[in-house]
């Protein structure tokens, strides 16, 4: 059976020199929540979506605008022209069997479109953190990464690795995507946070804050929290209000 990905471009704009942010579906969905926060806060515009057998299918109406009639699927791509930023938002885990092919397609397509680099946002199991007094954030940067200087300025802790290949436990496909980016000679940065399952919204805020120290996404002369806007789809994240009959 031929497995093909179908790209649907709403707006095939020029993305030369852009940074692509991809969340890896991981512990507490921190990467995805952070991307939701970025899309909502920066009023990013949807430019494309991808149908792929590698995705567990999910569909609903626009999660950022309740009045919109446009559909949102497992994989949508958003753009911020002002910040030269692309976000590929994933709303479901990838199927391992087909993930590599899908990720290669994503990386090769954006490489052809001449983006500058890829940033992978992910998370790792809190119990994997060895130095408990250190920052919960870690990074892995490939050679020639355009953000190296900012990473150093932000005092981020480097991921410790003995095996040669970065392995983020609980980090989903982050390591695989990093490897694919290296294969395609596209600079890549993994930024991850040690955390546990629960209410991971604070982790997403933390992640966006650390990301904005590396990539200038938000205005520096304003408080970051005032610039962040939660997407409307985050309401009822933990279910409906209790039924009135119980009182």
């Amino acid at each position: 059976m031929e497995k093909t990905n179908i790209w649907k471009f709403i707006n095939d704009c020029n993305v030369v020199g852009y940074t692509l942010i991809i969340p890896s579906v991981a512990v507490g969905n921190v990467g995805q929540l952070s991307c939701d926060l970025l899309i909502s806060s920066l009023n990013m515009v949807k430019i494309a979506s991808i149908y792929s057998p590698a995705q567990i299918p999910v569909i609903g109406y626009d999660p950022y605008d309740l009045k919109s009639n446009s559909l949102s699927t497992s994989c949508d791509i958003y753009i911020s022209d002002i910040r030269k930023l692309l976000v590929l938002q994933l709303r479901a885990p990838l199927v391992h069997k087909y993930a590599s092919g899908f990720l290669k397609d994503v990386v090769s397509t954006f490489r052809e479109k001449q983006i500058t680099d890829v940033i992978i946002l992910t998370s790792s199991f809190a119990h994997e953190k060895k130095h408990i007094l250190s920052s919960p954030f870690r990074f892995v940067a490939s050679e020639g990464n355009p953000h190296t200087q900012n990473v150093r300025k932000a005092n981020l802790v480097k991921h410790e690795e003995n095996t040669g290949e970065p392995k983020v436990f609980g980090g989903g496909f982050a390591s695989l995507l990093y490897k694919i980016c290296l294969e395609y000679k596209l600079p890549c940065l993994i930024l991850y946070k040690y955390c546990s399952e629960g209410d991971n919204i604070p982790d997403a805020y933390d992640m966006v804050q650390n990301l904005s120290n590396v990539v200038p996404i938000f205005a520096e002369n304003q408080d970051l929290l005032t610039q962040l806007k939660q997407p409307v789809s985050w309401t009822l994240l933990f279910g409906r209000p209790p039924p009135q009959d119980i009182y």
């Binding site: 179908i6 649907k8 979506s49 149908y51 567990i56 299918p57 999910v58 569909i59 609903g60 109406y61 626009d62 999660p63 309740l66 559909l71 699927t73 497992s74 709303r91 479901a92 409307v232 789809s233 985050w234 309401t235 009822l236 994240l237």
Partner: peptide, 19 residues
């Protein structure tokens, strides 16, 4: 209405037809 979404085969079929 959001935040309700659907998943599974029905979602996949709708997604494929949309694309």
């Amino acid at each position: 209405e959001q935040p309700n979404i659907i998943s599974g085969v029905a979602a996949g079929v709708l997604c494929l037809r949309e694309h």
